[in-house]
Write a protein that binds this DNA or RNA. Structure first.
Lengths: 335, 335
DNA sequence: TTGAAAGCGCTAACAG
DNA sequence: CTGTTAGCGCTTTCAA
């Protein structure tokens, strides 16, 4: 039989309201009374009924994490960070996976509006958010992570995409590369746009960059790599705007007998896969995922008018140099 | 302003009870009345308040997924499968990450008992479940996945651990290996015990296997590999009972200048990491994680007395042959 | 068949 | 400062 607040109250010889206030910390009680209550709670093993509490308060003390695919290591690590931070704040996390199913986002907003969750941490990796972008005022209950949703008013947590691109471009330029391929999201996505801009900036005005836009998936990387190989000028290096893309590119390169980095250099982005053990170990920009996840929760629970609620939070990226980039030589077989 | 059931009822000219019954499918209504209700729902955009419903029914229509670490690709993929299956059944999933923090498991059981979730899918990768094993009757509300918790009465979903070990052993024997190292969990864990038994069985009675027990983590793999290298007889092949372990072993091998498979062959387990792209591509037993996750949800929602509720469900594993295993030669440098 | 009313367990005005 | 009371919004017996 479940123990109710009332049972505890009876046992401690006080009213339910007193117990409620006391256990929720809204009330200081004389030593003796407090002890009696605590004692009754311990004796009965009382645990409050969360649904009753939620119905009464209108809060759920839980947040929703929306990701395209939790099997993707990037979002899995984001989830780990979000869960850890939420846990510290006694918040439960509900997992919502979109798998790019249309209409899902609206459902999650409904979940929010109906107080099923107190807030939403929203991560995406594609650009199609027709419905979601249009929802009106979500009252600072949503935080966007990693990718933008145009027209949606909400604080954002991004890594420094532009700087990441710039770092890669600069590094490649130092190695002498002047014809570089970009594999990644197109300008309709903020990550794609900024990384590409950064890449161009880092490479300098004399470099030539060929772009092959694709979705963030291994297949996307394969297709883009093929497109790069078949059309346009030969490149001596490829910048792939995600690990999975780099993996797809690498597969194509391997399949065509192109060596990395002797024939083509390769830079990835995210650094969530065990890139160090690949053949060759892949150089990549590392996103501060843990920080991003924790910060997102931070922002979500911050008071509505707090200073941290506005605009973008940009967290720094790091270039992790491994074996997949080498000097551009005139003898390169190129792509 | 939120729309309540009552508002819809008023608008449709019926009582709240009727609307409730109708929208929950407990009641068939004359065409006209039904249409009026539907119309009112649509017009107002009514969404039931989940907390009120949960309080009233004592169900939450959500399940808890307990994993040691969601950043671990194995559990991330398990989560993806569980979420997908749960979603199809209109079940929400709450994510509980233990990070091996003691006492957590008791909390999750409490969550279960308090109806915060209707059921728990429980995955672990260590053996210490003192408290959890002791809880009494969970009323068929828990399903164990991937690893056992002794003394806990609940249906279990495992991959065919013994067969996995056997397949590896047999393969290695065919390649001529007679001195093999085992890196993985010890006999206190069902995965460790069965995989090792299977390995011995597949290798046959004449083979010699050295064991290095460790926790399921990259560091565990490193330590175990070092132990294997330093103590005991040289081995010509290593069976690592998890991908991460194989990765740790590979790191040590690389660091010591040992070539795979020329000097040592290596077999992993799980096949969740992008093993095909490693140097060398790693041979591994593939677990049917998607099936395991879906089946677990299945079992959880099955009626209490259904035939599927009892005992273990064993799902088949597959040996994926890649480049990390080669013939045992007398010229092997060995370990 | 439909409706009125009680109640799920908790919180928070309000009153004493 | 403590207790009484009225909900939170839904489901569901029970009565009509």
């Amino acid at each position: 039989v479940p123990i109710r607040l009332r049972d505890v109250a009876t046992m401690a010889g006080v009213s339910p309201a007193t117990v409620s206030r006391f256990v929720n910390g809204h009330l200081r009680l004389p030593q003796a009374t407090g002890a009696r209550i605590l004692q009754a709670v311990a004796a009965t093993g009382y645990q409050p009924n969360p649904h009753a509490r939620r119905l009464s308060t209108g809060r759920s003390d839980s947040i929703g994490l929306v990701v395209p695919d939790i099997a993707n290591p990037f979002f899995a690590r984001l989830a780990a960070a979000v869960e850890a931070e939420a846990d510290e704040r006694k918040l439960e996390v509900s997992l919502f996976v979109t798998l790019n199913r249309p209409g899902r986002e609206r459902e999650y907003v409904q979940a929010l509006v109906r107080n099923r969750v107190d807030g939403l941490i929203f991560a995406t990796n594609h650009a199609d958010h027709a419905e979601f972008g249009q929802v009106g005022d979500l009252g600072d209950k949503v935080v966007l992570v990693d990718e933008d949703v145009p027209d949606l008013v909400a604080p954002r947590v991004f890594c420094d995409n532009r700087e990441g691109g710039r770092l890669a471009g600069q590094y490649l330029r130092e190695l002498g590369h002047a014809r570089v391929g970009y594999v990644g999201a197109g300008p309709e996505m903020i990550s794609g746009r900024r990384r590409l801009e950064g890449l161009r900036q880092g490479l300098g005005p004399d470099a030539e960059v060929s772009t092959a836009f694709c979705s963030y998936s291994r297949e996307g990387g394969v297709e883009a790599a093929v497109a790069l190989l078949e059309g346009g000028p030969r490149v001596t290096a490829i910048f792939a705007a995600a690990d999975e893309l780099a993996i797809g590119v690498l597969e194509v390169l391997h399949a065509r007998g192109l060596r990395v980095p002797e024939d083509v250099s390769l830079v990835g982005f995210d650094d969530v896969a065990p890139l160090a053990l690949f053949a060759p170990a892949i150089t990549a920009l590392r996103q501060p995922i843990e920080d991003m996840g924790r910060r997102a929760v931070d922002l979500l629970v911050a008071p509505d008018d707090g200073p941290r609620r506005q605009g973008e939070t940009i967290l720094p990226v790091t270039l992790i140099r491994r074996a997949s980039c080498g000097p551009a030589r005139s003898t390169n077989r190129g792509v």
